[in-house]
Design a protein around this nucleic acid. Structure first.
Lengths: 127, 127
DNA sequence: CAGAATCCAACCGGATACTG
DNA sequence: CAGTATCCGGTTGGATTCTG
């Protein structure tokens, strides 16, 4: 638990102590919630994918972003990078076993997202 | 499906078509993946919470952020705002039924996040 | 092919002060 | 209490160009 939570006599929940650190949800989001991060992990889950193909799959993200996020995912051990000595060289990315532990969450998110009216996704205005 | 994916004779997956729109995972993240958004939704899931209590629970987020994110969640129908005519007035926030549909993957995220070595969460450098 | 480097405008978000 | 308003430095991330 992050904070001590009480319920007052009106049935409201009150905090008598604050989270000193971001809670688990927030910490998780910082890892997997970055722009494009989830998508990238998702698209390397079924086998090795080459850099440019990945970039095309993600479509909308610049190569700069793809690279940045991939490095992060690599540093965190969620994705593995492999250079193949062809000509010209090819580089493939693949999810690690550790990365797979995040797929449950991502798949639930995907399902949830697909069940949504498209309106919510792109544009939030309603007035 | 967002793109047509093929598998070449080397076993690599290639994209012959690009996502024109962000894929479902990305769209979902845009809704629930914003800074503090997940945390906020999570903390209003068990009943009405007053604004300042919420701010204390989230600890680390400024009131400005809390307000902004709450408005977004409201606009999207994930959270309901209720003004109570006390003196001084109190305002409580509570998750909606629609908001509850997001709790499944948020809980998975939480579990995943809690299973992580703390090192990953805060700091990613390793050299 | 798979990036790295550079530039830079736009946005984000914390701090602070103020309000009904 | 529950915000709003303003300031403003830092980060983000797209566009573009270059490289081995």
């Amino acid at each position: 638990m992050d904070a001590r939570i009480d319920v007052d006599d009106m049935g409201r929940r009150t905090a008598t102590d604050a989270c000193t650190e971001p809670c688990a949800i927030e910490r998780g989001m910082r890892i997997i919630g970055g722009k494009w991060t989830g998508s990238i992990l998702w698209h390397v889950k079924d086998g090795p994918v080459r850099f440019n193909d990945l970039a095309r799959m993600i479509g909308g993200a610049s190569k700069k972003m793809i690279t940045e996020r991939l490095r992060q995912l690599e540093d965190q051990g969620l994705v593995r990078r492999e250079v193949r000595d062809t000509a010209p060289i090819t580089v493939v990315y693949e999810i690690t076993d550790f990365g797979r532990t995040a797929l449950g969450f991502l798949d639930e998110l995907r399902q949830w997202s697909e069940s949504l009216p498209k309106r919510l996704s792109s544009d939030t205005r309603q007035s």
